[in-house]
């Protein structure tokens, strides 16, 4: 126990504490030891920065669009996989493939498929007549958020589907049998029995995904055009910390993100305490 706690304290708690301290100083990347205490000046600067607010907006938009999409699609896939049919194992294996592909690699694959001139997706969409001319999916700031949501949904729906599938398989079968005997319609079974019983699992899956979505970094880093106005909060914090070498400002942004995530966690844990901790 002790070694593990020690490691956790030194690689998680201590750096977090230092980040909090840095956010109150004017530390520069090359010269951290000579940082001066500046109070809340970094936060004042941060809140006056339009790019920060657009990063907050992008992150929240991303989370509100991607998480529900993943939940709905994941639930559909889970329901399909819950049935017994030929090739079920194969389908489950296929569903695992996007999860196994490294995020950076999937970002690269999609940016190739979505390439504005040579991309296969533009070609397909033009061919079926959905769009008149190829779209710059990753280059245009107003499209790149859609693109990022799309790729994230592709990549993480499998995780959602597997969690929900495990939840479905753990449900007591007798309710379903009783309902079938009583001749209840499929739709009614789904909304009145499956969904309420699945609620705890659904909440846990939503928590995991929301928190993950709020800290998104790598997809945005690769897929967006590199403009400051497509940044999410993580990208913004790193940009100020590394590219502009302003440790204080970057740390302040990171601290804000931390508090937002902490707030969401506390909210969620209070809703779903029993589900997460089991019988501790």
């Amino acid at each position: 126990m002790t070694p593990c706690l020690f490691v956790l304290l030194s690689v998680a708690a201590w750096p977090l504490f230092r980040t909090f301290l840095f956010s109150l100083t004017d530390a520069q990347l090359g010269d951290i030891p000579h940082a001066q205490f500046v109070g809340f000046a970094n936060f004042a600067e941060l809140f006056a920065d339009d790019n920060w607010w657009s990063a907050v907006k992008n992150t929240l938009l991303f989370a509100t669009f991607s998480v529900p999409c993943e939940a709905i699609l994941g639930l559909m896939i889970a329901l399909v996989l819950h049935k017994t049919f030929m090739g079920r194992g194969l389908l489950r294996a296929a569903v695992l493939v996007p999860w196994a592909i490294p995020t950076i690699v999937s970002a690269r694959m999609w940016s190739w498929m979505l390439h504005d001139v040579y991309g296969v997706i533009n070609e397909l969409l033009v061919w079926i007549g959905a769009i008149a001319a190829p779209l710059p999916w990753t280059a245009a700031p107003e499209l790149s958020l859609i693109t990022i949501v799309l790729v994230d949904v592709w990549k993480t729906t499998p995780f959602m589907a597997l969690l929900l599938l495990a939840g479905l398989q753990a449900l007591p079968q007798d309710c379903f049998e009783a309902a079938l005997v009583d001749g209840v319609s499929r739709k009614r079974i789904f909304f009145r029995i499956t969904l309420p019983l699945l609620r705890p699992t659904l909440i846990v899956a939503l928590i995991f995904r929301t928190l993950d979505a709020l800290r998104i970094f790598d997809l945005v880093y690769i897929l967006s055009s590199g403009d400051a106005d497509t940044d999410t909060m993580s990208v913004y914090a790193r940009r100020h910390f590394v590219d502009y070498a302003n440790v204080g400002h970057g740390s302040a942004a990171a601290v804000c993100l931390f508090f937002i995530v902490a707030l969401v966690t506390v909210l969620y844990i209070n809703i779903g305490r029993h589900n997460i901790l089991g019988e501790v």
Binding site: L8, S10, V11, A12, W14, P15, L16, F17, R18, T19, F22, A27, I32, F208, L211, L214, R215, F217, M233, S234, A237, R238, F241, V247, G250, S251, A254, V255, L257, F258, V261, A262, T265
Partner: peptide, 16 residues
């Protein structure tokens, strides 16, 4: 800790 954003430890970890 499994949930929190890695960016939050970035500068502290860099110093370490």
């Amino acid at each position: 800790v499994t949930m929190f954003p890695q960016v939050a430890v970035l500068s502290g970890m860099f110093e370490l």
